[in-house]
């Protein structure tokens, strides 16, 4: 008899579950798939408190992982994703994302026109910028002379041997290598890519580590003294190690924009709009920006900043800083294979 009671109560428990889920669905939810360390938890909580919309939040570490998942799910299951330039380009080309209704985004006017209408989405139909930043050079000024770290080619200097860190992201690292070789980071010309590879091959003996997630740690504990970094990581690391400095190399940094996009199979499109519109508020965008130290595309947020922050080139680069900088664009699968072959060659010592 006891067993029966237990079974019954279990059955009730299972029967009750769908009801609970339905109740949540009444208020609505928004399923967000975003980079890790990108929106502070209290901002998410505030959104739910204010609108009653539950935020189901999951994160990824690389564009590659996000793209594979969205593609396998054929754009279903998530209401918002946040791809970077070249992956957004690819997802638009492959029809994996759908359009925004600009009329529902009342705060859209806050965004910096300079960062709107990128080459892959000229009317911002598919993408609303969330954060942007650059991929440049970081040095430890205790060991590295600023005059000897002006271009990517300076990484080859013998005094940095064994003290260099590069990103383990193939496109990012090839991007700066192509710049070092005086080529465009989006070139599909095999000779240009070979030139980039030659640079990396020459640099490889100097490289201590290829890294994706622990750049800050490697600089703070002085395992490395020069290398590539996102501006946000560099600024966060500088808070713990004041000798660190972020630099825009003269042969050109890379610039990225992470934008929100709605996968084609999204179920809660209205809630997705509401969520994006919420994040476009200057004071909310300020909180996101402060926490992770990337650059904000929100002009209202920039007005809220202290003059010191506003004039920090690592946070708000000048036009001169970005003179030769480039966005990474989708180069197509043939060129990507070429990159990959060179990348494997590089890492297996051929």
């Amino acid at each position: 008899m006891k067993k029966l009671a237990l079974l019954l109560s279990l059955a009730f428990l299972f029967a009750a579950c769908p009801d609970a889920a339905l109740a949540a669905a009444d208020k609505g939810e928004v399923v967000v798939y975003n980079w890790s360390e990108y929106i502070p938890q209290d901002v998410l909580d505030e959104f739910t408190d204010e609108t009653g919309i539950k935020v189901v939040y999951s994160t990824y570490e690389t564009n590659d992982a996000m793209y594979s998942k969205i593609k396998l799910l054929r754009g279903q299951s998530y209401d918002l994703v946040c791809p970077s330039t070249y992956y957004l380009h690819l997802m638009i080309e492959e029809g994996l994302v759908t359009t925004f209704d600009h009329a529902k985004l009342t705060n859209l006017g806050n965004l910096d026109p300079k960062l709107m209408a990128p080459p892959y989405d000229p009317e911002n139909k598919f993408s609303i910028p969330y954060m942007w930043g650059s991929f440049g050079m970081i040095i430890n000024t205790k060991y590295v002379d600023r005059e000897k770290a002006k271009t990517w080619r300076d990484l080859l200097r013998p005094e940095y041997k064994g003290k260099v860190i590069l990103s383990d992201d193939m496109r990012d690292t090839f991007g700066i290598a192509m710049h070092a070789a005086g080529k465009s980071a989006n070139s599909t010309n095999p000779d240009d890519i070979k030139a980039g590879y030659e640079f990396l091959k020459e640099l490889h003996p100097s490289v201590r580590v290829f890294d994706l997630t622990a750049v800050k740690q490697a600089f703070i504990s002085e395992e490395v003294i020069i290398g590539t970094s996102f501006n946000g990581d560099a600024l966060v690391a500088k808070q713990e190690h004041p000798d660190l400095e972020y630099i825009y190399p003269e042969d050109g940094a890379l610039v990225w924009i992470d934008s929100f996009a709605i996968p084609v199979g999204a179920k809660n499109v209205d809630n997705a709009h509401e969520f994006v519109n919420f994040l476009l508020r200057p004071e909310i965008a300020k909180r996101c920006q402060e926490e992770f130290m990337y650059s904000t595309p929100n002009l209202g947020t920039i007005e809220l900043m202290s003059p010191e922050e506003r004039n920090n080139p690592a946070l708000q680069p000048t036009d001169k800083d970005l003179q030769k900088a480039e966005y990474l664009l989708n180069v197509g699968s043939k060129t990507l294979m070429l990159y990959k072959d060179y990348w494997e060659k590089l890492k297996s010592g051929f």
Binding site: T62, D64, A65, S68, D168, M170, H204, V207, R208, V209, F210, D211, L212, A214, S333, L336, M337, K340, W343, E344, K347, S348, G349
Partner: peptide, 25 residues
């Protein structure tokens, strides 16, 4: 190996992961 070894040399696990994620092959 990626976290502790610095990923200067590629290993089989990374190779397979890269085919699926990075190279989409």
């Amino acid at each position: 190996p990626e976290i502790l070894g610095g990923a200067t040399n590629m290993l089989l696990g990374t190779f397979i992961k890269n085919q699926f994620l990075v190279a989409r092959d």
